[in-house]
Nucleic acid binder design. Structure first.
Lengths: 223, 223
DNA sequence: ACAAACATACCAACTGTACGGTATGCTTTT
DNA sequence: AAAAGCATACCGTACAGTTGGTATGTTTGT
């Protein structure tokens, strides 16, 4: 099936490397501004190999979104927040985890599929759908915990577990947009704090705000 | 200064029409995928006129962001939510207003500068900065009302009025991303509802949730 | 066992064209 | 008359995609 390339045999098969390169380059430059040559160069692969694996640039975009869905699913499945027994604690731990990975270079902690969806939603339906699958598929993993926490505490609002799960993703996506605009992760961290506070208020657990790492960020104001 | 064009004299001066065309086309196709010819065609103007007014495509992107900042500022200044006397009521009315304008074609109610910032944050600093100015400038218009509402009700959290103002924009931007991915405004409306609920909880005003138009949307669940 | 025969993975060089940008001149305003 | 506003025709190039190949497995007939 897979075979090392002639030029860089040590870096795995070409298809995977193209997908990884697409992920990295598109997150920095966006989908349209990223050229096939950019991706080939970053992957250390020729154009011939590229078009052997992907019939078009659009197909690569959709494949990159699928790849993103798979890798992030594995990443979050292995994350420590699942260890908590109480569903609500798991939710808080999830938010703390999302907050903790906001560090370093912008292109490393922002979302590939959010960026692509926003860019190509009207022009490449296949890519948009793959992005939607990734975003809402991830949101769906939070839904059981939210539903369990609601019934455990007798919470019954006009909102559903699914809508709150989606909302967490909306806040994260929006936080990425603002952070990119400002070139500063601090504004993203603050929105995640607001998200956690919202969940705490919904479930009547203001004490939860003192857990996790919800405090160690904004050095511009002392409390 | 301005002069009607030869081809379409009835539609105002070329510069304004180019900016309006840029706004409309870029919101649909994104900045990179939008060509200068696209914009000229949409504006009913030739390339000569384009490069008379803008030295490059990048300059047009930045000018379009500035234009967006100006027109949206005027739009929100004229909006009805300012009529309320109580600062907190104004905030709720603002959220209701943002909710109410989520209707019709996606490209008509989503945000130009959020889209552009996400796309070019690493490649065109001039555009990114113009987008940031628009987003955070608009957020800043909410800050006095939030601050007034906080002091009027003796609210003093670990969060600042500025951070909550920014958070409202993060939620809206994220709602746009999810709506584009799903091709459905409903998910955006739900996030705006969560935002309003958060503010109501922060200020201890759950009753506010029954005001405005926070209910007339999601026909898929009856309460 | 051992090759044809086929399939997969990859590479280098090329092509048509669509792109951002330019050169130059005409038209209207002041 | 001078300058601003606009139009036409035209570049150089960078782009997505193609062509035609080589090298490395994998099957299949005998």
């Amino acid at each position: 099936m897979s075979r090392p390339t002639k030029h860089h045999p040590e870096r795995g098969d070409a298809r995977t490397r193209l997908l990884e390169a697409a992920r990295d380059v598109i997150r920095r430059k966006g989908f349209s501004a990223t050229t096939v040559d950019d991706i080939c160069k970053a992957a250390g692969v020729t154009k011939g190999a590229y078009f052997h694996h992907f019939p078009s640039k659009e197909a690569l975009g959709a494949a990159a979104a699928d790849f993103w869905a798979e890798t992030t699913a594995a990443f979050f499945e292995a994350a420590p927040y699942h260890a908590y027994e109480d569903p609500l604690e798991r939710i808080f731990a999830y938010v703390d985890f999302r907050r903790a990975i906001i560090a370093g270079d912008l292109a490393e902690w922002t979302c590939l599929v959010g960026t692509m969806a926003q860019e190509v939603y009207a022009t490449y339906p296949s890519i948009r759908d793959a992005c939607a699958e990734s975003i809402f598929g991830h949101a769906a993993t939070l839904e059981p915990d939210i539903a369990a926490a609601m019934s455990a505490r007798g919470i019954e609002g006009p909102w559903s577990a699914a809508s709150l799960a989606n909302h967490t993703q909306a806040v994260l996506q929006g936080a990425f947009v603002l952070a990119k605009a400002k070139g500063d992760p601090a504004v993203a961290l603050e929105s995640v704090d607001h998200l956690k506070r919202y969940i705490a208020l919904l479930f009547g657990r203001p004490g939860a705000l003192h857990d996790g790492n919800a405090r160690q960020s904004n050095n511009q104001r002392e409390e």
